[in-house]
Design a binder for these strands. Structure first.
Lengths: 192, 192
DNA sequence: TTTTTATGCAAGTATTCACTTGCATTACAT
DNA sequence: ATGTAATGCAAGTGAATACTTGCATAAAAA
């Protein structure tokens, strides 16, 4: 990836984060990337291609790799906290805003599969973790898919609501939220 | 509100749900409402005013009224299930899609306060409920804001993820999700 | 019946957008 | 030194968009 193309992608993704795909014009992108507008079309077939190329870069996909899920201690509390912390550290309000900006109907058909990958990766990792914990005899038999959805939704909901309303909805801090939520889940899980 | 204006509003809101604010054109709206495009501008100052008028109608605000929160039994399990069911029945995937469509930067300044009202109403009702339960001696002293955020985020996250990915992320059904989540929260809360 | 109001219809305006073209310039490789 | 690739610059194109205008018509109110 040459430097100019990268500048174009970065500018486009940042603008989409701020204004959404439809409201982001190629003129905007050129301005932000500090290049001429026609250069965009020498590097890419069109506006859409910029975005789709950008979405393939790890940089613009939340740096979610399987490695995240490997440092488990097989102790419910630290592991669940680690899962949530990993998620909230990567799927920041900025990243959520970008994902929303990529939901425009003109491109959502193409972007949705990529966007879907992130929650799917976390959810499946959680389910797998619960199943292994069960094998180790450290967890009762439960509906793990449902349980994982609850844990994941609470993480997703928190970061999304922060992205949408900052502190206007709640002033609860991330770390406080993680500790409290996990402690709530723990007792709910263990007691069964 | 005369019939024609209402048809325009309904058409606009439906289209925004499907395509978002920016991609919804006045031509689209006229077509869907089955009226002439220029009639729109006889009834409203501009595209923006249609939306802002629509958002003031209960119909397009999720029918969230304080009455929802009044049928409480002061028993944690049925009450929490009722809260979640009320939320998920009103804030459907369709409604979530509309909210996202209203996040366009051209109008978000104006729509955000209205959008914010809904989660705020639920969250505050939950916190108040916990405090009253505490007064009745039916709940331990906890960080209620944090607890309410966890419960609310899990409801919000579920409906949002359904709106975004249908059953591609999870096939868990609403009622199953409510029962399981509440049972998890219950044990987490009561045990303290 | 007469007048007013609401709406349709057709044409148009100014602006913006994604995308193009032709030519000049710069920088780097050979 | 020469050729080539990348980019700037300026101008332009066709389509779409929000919004307007003037006039005809039909229904409702007086």
């Amino acid at each position: 990836m040459d430097e100019t193309s990268q500048k174009i992608i970065d500018a486009a993704m940042e603008l989409i984060k701020e204004k959404g795909y439809v409201a982001t014009t190629t003129k905007d992108i050129a301005g932000r990337a500090d290049i001429n507008e026609c250069t965009i079309f020498r590097k890419f077939k069109g506006k859409k291609e910029i975005v789709l190329t950008g979405m393939e870069q790890e940089k613009w996909r939340g740096n979610v790799s399987p490695a995240i899920f490997q440092n488990v201690t097989w102790e419910l509390q630290p592991d669940l906290e680690m899962f949530m912390r990993n998620y909230l550290d990567r799927i920041t309000p900025d990243f959520v805003k970008l994902s929303i900006g990529l939901r425009a109907p003109q491109i959502y058909e193409d972007t949705r599969p990529q966007i879907l990958k992130i929650p799917k990766a976390f959810l499946e990792a959680l389910i797998l973790y619960f199943e292994k914990m069960r094998e180790k005899g450290k967890m009762p038999l439960l509906d793990y898919e449902c349980l994982a959805m609850t844990v994941f939704s609470s993480a997703f909901g928190f970061t999304f609501l922060k992205a949408s309303f900052n502190d206007q909805l709640t002033t609860v801090r991330q770390e406080e939220y993680i500790k409290n939520s996990v402690s709530l889940f723990l007792k709910g899980i263990e007691q069964e």
